[in-house]
Nucleic acid binder design. Structure first.
Length: 931
RNA sequence: GGGCGAAUAGCUCAGUUGGUUAGAGCACCUGCCUUACACGCAGGGUGUCGGGGGUUCGAGUCCCUCUUCGCCCA
């Protein structure tokens, strides 16, 4: 048999990664098959993740990198666990965001979207998306995303648009969508309404203006109000005071004169007025404040509109004569200054205070949002929220980390109706038509199909101009990507409900909660059983990485410099659940050292191992006679079992398994609900095994065994290949490329086999063998010698003499064991090791290890006797302290009486051992230091 | 203003129902280019568990309180 060419010294990730990714694609490794799903009679339980669709105009940033790496780790793990794993990729048309991008392009040509007109603008946007829209999905391939690209979805595709219409019509028919006339959040730059969630709060230092409104019929008396937005006063229709507020009770029912506008408005009593805020008097501007609107409705007040859609003052509706000519057409902030000036001149401005308050801004363009009275489509949320709340309470859905569940419950409990219409051009047009000809006017027509003529009078109809909130379509994502509303869809039957959703907490309300609500509404089932919320990528000053701050990291830069595995490892291993990932955009070398170093280490382990093992056939471990295994073999196999168990513990169960009387059928039991998906703990457990156990101990201990042909060599080869094979499987979900590359080279690998499709390691279940425990004794001796070397600064390469005096406590078994392992100890410590019965005279360094065994390094001239004495005395002193503390505790009658027996007994045993060790150390000090 | 959470090593974080001498990774310090790996090897823990009080034989862990910070909501 010919030997394979030796592996290159350096792992060439730049050449290897694309090659391996191509091989995976060609072999269809990421393709899921509906017919394999156990839900439709197949042999595999499905495991599905739908990718949070990035905006179609997005380019990859480290946040996407983190989000998608987490998903890829989970989906690769599920695939190896034998699931029919499906990861559905796709993009979001991202209404406002995309429209803004194209508007900027148009603006560069000196035009607005209105110059182009709706049809041309939409076409322009479609062309832009067609040209650039696939970019981010291409980029995800470079970081190893194992998504099923044949199912790539797009929220504005014809298929998904069908789902959107179906959802709208069904909700309408159920009475859950309605047309509402109320004050909503309006962005004067984007020229659209926004949902509550899209109008984000910024804490700002503003001003609180105190303005006097003269009381009519009581000269000299005035009511002073405090407002942050004096420009809205032109639309004031009343002043409100709290009915319980003694200060103003006599004025209820009277009138005041509205300054500037110079007209009479009433003083009303309403609990909305907060006696403790400002002066306790609040001006009521129903058309320009949501709370005032409610007050206005309660008191049947007029609702004059004095600010237009672009934020300029004017007499827009029912405002006859309220806006003075000099303010007409003026921008709202300019008008604020001007009005304050006018009031200052007239003496009606009483004072100005600085004021901390939260101001709503458009989440897309950061413009200050203007409350605006208008007609919008709303979704009635309370009935939708009920099952979504119950699901989390029952445990049908878990949210990780746990603390977000409280936030979710709190939001859903106080949910408000959702404004879903947007005055944009880019999106799903509201499927509502109006007939202007019918007499009397007909009700609106809500339809799944386009309507051309009025079903009542046959006249032409016009479609509602608005489009739907982008989040309305993404809220259907788990359904629509799997074929809903087509009840015959194979994917829907095979893969819905999906399993885990991985996203950032910022869109818990925007997206996650709405998907859950719509999932229950349309299927009666939760869309997934696990919501995993991960942290944010931040720079070293803990600022969120962002384009505008210029502190971002391009994941593709990282893959070019260190490879995709290095990127993935660094992100996964460095991220506690829900915790932010801190990286330094100024120093990629340092930031990604962990991933780069680990990849190199893995490569070197593989290089060494494959070279020494050779390509001759290797026995499967099961075929190796147990008696042929050395203590080191047994030890590494037991460590492997422990590592597998630890990885499984950290990753937790894939699915909930506890039957429950709810629509979902299965719920998380408390013991497992918050237990899994600790990806960093899993990664660390796997890393610790391969690096600190397999490489540092096992490989080092068996070098000579591989040089001599024979049964022992074959046993070592079998164990080595088995352990490394299992280690590569364990690590594959995090670092798929380098593990696949090495795994392919293991002896006996058949063509067409892929690690990506290999089975997840299973512990052998062999109980901790005696031989494995005995190897721990060997390790203790080695560690003691190394510590002596370190403490005495003896160069690691220098051959030394080591004497071991076994404790006689076990009747000589330990002595036999150590005699058999002398060669291993010698190799691992670079020493001539001997067993002795007596401690020789002369200068030597000493260590006492478990059970009283002594390790002696007689190195006259190599060690500093003074230093060694000091060290030993220090150790004795430390021991004394601990003995004292423990004795004190054991002398406490209450402790002995009340603490569990086990705890006390354990304490006594430890005390005894400490005392033994102290005696030995004191002896050493006496003989070595003569004191 | 309401709610939730956090505060443990230089940094990011674990620490299960209270029970040995509080841990991990990275960073750091010391010694080494020891024939797979200096992107490495060997050794080293550097801590008033935010402050104060309480419960308990025993508190990082439970209770109260204060401080600081973060997130969500209004």
């Amino acid at each position: 048999m010919t030997s394979p060419p030796p592996l290159p010294d350096r792992y060439d990730f730049a050449a290897t990664e694309p090659e391996i990714y191509r091989a995976w694609l060609d072999a269809g490794c990421f393709d899921a098959h509906a017919e394999h799903s156990s839900r439709v009679g197949g042999e595999r339980q499905p495991y599905t993740i739908v990718m949070p669709p990035p905006n179609v105009t997005a380019i990859l940033h480290v946040g996407h990198g983190l989000n998608n790496t987490i998903q890829d780790v989970i989906v690769r793990w599920a695939r190896m666990r034998g699931a029919e794993a499906l990861w559905v990729p796709g993009t979001d048309h991202a209404g406002i965001a995309t429209q803004n991008v194209v508007e900027k392009l148009v603006a560069a040509e000196g035009k607005t979207r209105f110059d182009l007109g709706r049809a041309a603008f939409v076409q322009r946007t479609e062309e832009f998306v067609a040209r650039t829209g696939g970019t981010i999905l291409e980029q995800l391939r470079a970081i190893g995303a194992s998504a099923d690209w044949s199912r790539t979805a797009y929220t504005l595709s014809p298929e998904l648009s069908v789902a959107v219409r179906e959802a709208f019509v069904r909700l309408y028919e159920r009475g859950l969508i309605y047309r509402g006339h109320r004050v909503i959040h309006w962005c004067p730059r984007c020229l659209t309404s926004l949902s509550d969630e899209e109008a984000e709060f910024n804490d700002e230092t503003g001003k609180l203006y105190h303005i006097g409104y003269p009381v009519e019929g009581q000269p000299g008396r005035e009511l002073v109000i405090a407002t942050t937005r004096p420009e809205t006063m032109l639309g004031d229709v009343a002043l409100a005071v709290n009915p319980d507020d003694e200060r103003y009770r006599d004025l209820i029912g009277h009138s005041v004169r509205l300054p500037i506008v110079n007209r009479s408005i009433p003083v009303i009593a309403d609990a909305y007025a907060d006696p403790t805020f400002g002066t306790g008097v609040v001006k009521i501007t129903p058309a320009h404040d949501a709370n005032d609107f409610e007050v206005g409705r309660r008191h049947s007040l007029p609702m004059p509109v004095v600010i237009d859609e672009t934020g300029k003052l004017g007499e827009i509706a029912d405002a006859d004569g309220r806006v003075p000519a000099e303010l007409n057409g003026m921008d709202r902030f300019e008008a604020r200054e001007r009005i304050v000036e006018i009031l200052r001149t007239s003496g009606e401005l009483k004072k100005i205070e600085t004021h901390q308050h939260a101001v709503r801004h458009c989440y897309r363009c950061d413009t200050v949002v203007e409350p605006r009275l208008s007609d919008q489509w709303f979704v009635k949320m309370e009935p939708l929220a009920r099952p979504a709340l119950q699901a989390v309470r029952d445990g049908a859905i878990r949210i990780l980390p746990e603390r977000w569940e409280a936030v979710y419950v709190n939001w859903l409990t106080n949910i408000r109706d959702w404004n879903i219409s947007r005055q944009l051009w880019w999106g799903h047009r509201v499927p509502v038509w109006y007939c202007d000809e019918c007499d009397p006017p007909q009700d609106i027509i809500v339809s799944r199909d386009d309507v051309r003529e009025c079903p009542h009078c046959g006249c032409p109809v016009r479609q509602d101009e608005d489009v739907l909130d982008t989040w309305f379509s993404s809220g259907l994502w788990p359904l629509s990507t799997l074929g809903w509303p087509d009840e015959q869809s194979a994917d829907l039957a095979a893969f819905y409900p999906t399993d885990t959703l991985v996203t950032a907490p910022e869109i818990l309300f925007f997206w996650v909660a709405r998907m859950i609500m719509l999932g229950y509404e349309f299927t009666g089932r939760a869309p997934y059983h696990t919501v995993y919320l991960h942290g944010t990528a931040r720079d070293t000053q803990h600022r969120k990485m962002s384009k505008s701050l210029g502190n971002g990291i391009d994941p593709l830069d990282v893959t070019k410099l260190y490879g995709a595995d290095a990127l993935r490892w660094t992100l996964i291993a460095g991220m506690g659940m829900g915790a932010d990932v801190v990286l330094d955009p100024e120093d990629l070398d340092k930031s990604f050292a962990a991933g780069r170093n680990f990849g190199t280490k893995l490569w070197n382990i593989g290089r060494f191992l494959l070279d020494r093992v050779g390509s001759d056939p290797v026995q499967p471990l099961a075929a190796v006679d147990r008696g042929a295994l050395t203590r080191a073999d047994e030890w590494i196999l037991s460590r492997l079992d422990a590592a597998i168990a630890e990885c499984d513990r950290a990753l937790g169960p894939l699915w909930p398994t506890t039957p429950h009387d709810s629509p979902d059928g299965l719920v998380w039991r408390e013991s497992e609900r918050y237990a899994g998906l600790k990806l960093n703990e899993y990664a660390e457990a796997a890393r610790h095994f391969v690096w600190n156990e397999l490489a540092d101990w096992y490989l080092e201990s068996l070098k000579s065994r591989l040089e001599t042909p024979g049964a022992d060599r074959e046993a070592a080869r079998a164990v080595l290949v088995h352990a490394f094979d299992q280690a590569l499987r364990m690590l594959h979900p995090v670092v798929p490329f380098v593990t696949e590359s090495l795994w392919q080279r293991l002896p006996g690998r058949a063509a067409g086999e892929f690690l990506v499709r290999a089975s997840w390691p299973a512990a052998r279940g062999a109980k901790q063998s005696r031989a494995a425990q005995e190897f721990e004794q060997v390790r203790e001796v080695v560690l003691a010698v190394r510590q002596i070397r370190g403490d005495n600064a003896v160069a690691p390469g220098k051959m030394i003499e080591v004497l071991v005096r076994p404790s006689g406590a076990d009747g000589g078994e330990l002595r036999t064991l150590l005699e058999q392992e002398l060669a291993t100890i010698g190799r691992l410590t670079r020493s001539e090791t001997r067993i002795v019965d007596d401690v020789p005279e002369g200068a030597a360094a000493h260590a006492v290890i478990g059970g009283g065994t002594e390790v002696i390094v007689p190195l006259a001239g190599l060690i500093d006797v003074e230093k060694e004495c000091a060290r030993l005395r220090g150790e004795v002193a430390e021991l004394e302290k601990q003995i004292l503390s423990r004795e004190g505790r054991l002398n406490n009658a209450k402790y002995v009486e009340r603490a569990p027996e086990q705890v006390v007994a354990n304490d006594r045993a430890i005390l005894q051992e400490m005392k033994t060790k102290r005696e030995q150390l004191v002896d050493k000090v006496r003989s070595l230091c003569g004191a």
